[in-house]
Amino acid sequence: MKKLYFLLLAILMVSCNATMDTTSNETPETPKYTYLALGDSYTIGESVRETERWPVQLTEQLRNRNYEMAAPMIIAKTGWTTSDLLRGMDQNLEVQRDFDLVSILIGVNNQYQGKLITEYEEELRQIFRRAINHSKTLEKGVFAVSIPDYGYTPFGSSNQEKISAEIDRFNQVFKRVADEFGVVFYNITPISRNSSNPELVASDGLHPSALQYQLWVEQYISQVAEKLPN
């Protein structure tokens, strides 16, 4: 059990090369819309290519709908908790509202590291306040994406019931806070629980694959597009 714990911790705590990333294909010469993605390994796309990260896929799908999107600004690292994300926002963001879209996906490492759920809720509120402050249209331009369930991956399968129950509790808090701030909450957790399709898991046996991220984006692309001003 101890070996499993430390192996999972090592994978979750592997840092990406950069906190802030703006990678994307075919960025328009004069983009009209900007997007800030806040999160952890799921947002930075641990174990998938840069072009396969879901914020990048979302940006490309919006471009396919004729929205002239800039490359997404991604503030995320593998292993980050809510407190880590708050520090990352402090280091990389200015005060003014300057994004047409802002996404939030955070909490799996709070759950994994055994952080108090009350602490998660308190810090999550701070993240939502700052996210809304950086949105040109306040809460209208912000959206939250639920925490996927790694209990259904090969890595977490031996402790699936406990992991899933805890992920559910964190997502309940996540959605409640989103509702309090008037921010739409997209529930992609059921997609992550489709254990019958091994192609939904990345090669590390823990994180979502590019295909799973694609399914996430397909679920909420139309609603996100409606958030962009004409």
Rank of each mutant, 00 (worst) to 15 (best):
R193V: 07
L211N: 02
G107M: 10
I191A: 01
F170E: 01
G107K: 09
Q212S: 13
G141D: 08
W216K: 01
V145N: 02
I221K: 04
Y186K: 11
R53S: 13
V224D: 07
S192F: 04
L86D: 06
M73N: 07
D168M: 06
L85T: 04
V177F: 05
Y120T: 07
E29M: 12
M69V: 12
T118M: 05
M13I: 10
N171E: 05
E121D: 06
G39V: 10
V142T: 11
Y152D: 04
L116I: 00
G107Q: 08
Y112I: 06
G107I: 05
K136E: 12
T78E: 08
S158W: 14
D168C: 00
S192V: 04
E139H: 13
W80E: 01
S135L: 09
E60H: 15
P148D: 08
P28V: 09
Y112S: 15
G88K: 10
E139Y: 04
Q57F: 08
V201W: 08
P198Q: 08
E121M: 02
Y5P: 00
M1G: 14
S158N: 12
S158I: 14
Y42F: 14
Y120F: 15
L4S: 14
R129G: 00
S157Q: 10
A210H: 03
V102C: 09
V173R: 12
I221D: 00
Y220W: 11
Y35P: 03
A210V: 06
R63F: 01
V102W: 04
T81R: 15
L7D: 13
E180C: 01
L7I: 10
L12I: 06
M20T: 13
A202N: 03
Y42A: 09
R49F: 09
Q172I: 05
S41I: 04
A76I: 06
S157M: 11
F6A: 01
T30D: 13
T51G: 07
Q57Y: 05
T22I: 05
K77R: 15
L93F: 09
Y150G: 00
M20P: 00
A70V: 05
L4V: 15
Y5N: 11
Y186P: 11
L105F: 00
L4G: 07
R130Q: 12
Q219H: 08
L124G: 02
I127S: 05
R125G: 09
A225P: 08
G182W: 04
L138Q: 13
G156T: 04
N133S: 14
E122W: 06
Y5A: 11
S209M: 06
E50M: 13
D90L: 03
P190I: 04
S192A: 12
K227R: 15
A225W: 07
E139D: 11
A76V: 03
D90A: 13
H207T: 09
L7V: 04
D98Y: 00
L105M: 15
T59G: 10
G114W: 02
C16N: 15
V56D: 02
I74R: 10
Q214Y: 08
M13G: 02
D40A: 14
I11P: 00
I167R: 01
I74D: 02
Q214F: 03
A10M: 14
S195Y: 05
L215V: 01
F128G: 00
Y112K: 11
Y150Q: 06
A71I: 09
R169Y: 06
R176L: 07
S195H: 08
T137G: 00
P229D: 12
I117K: 14
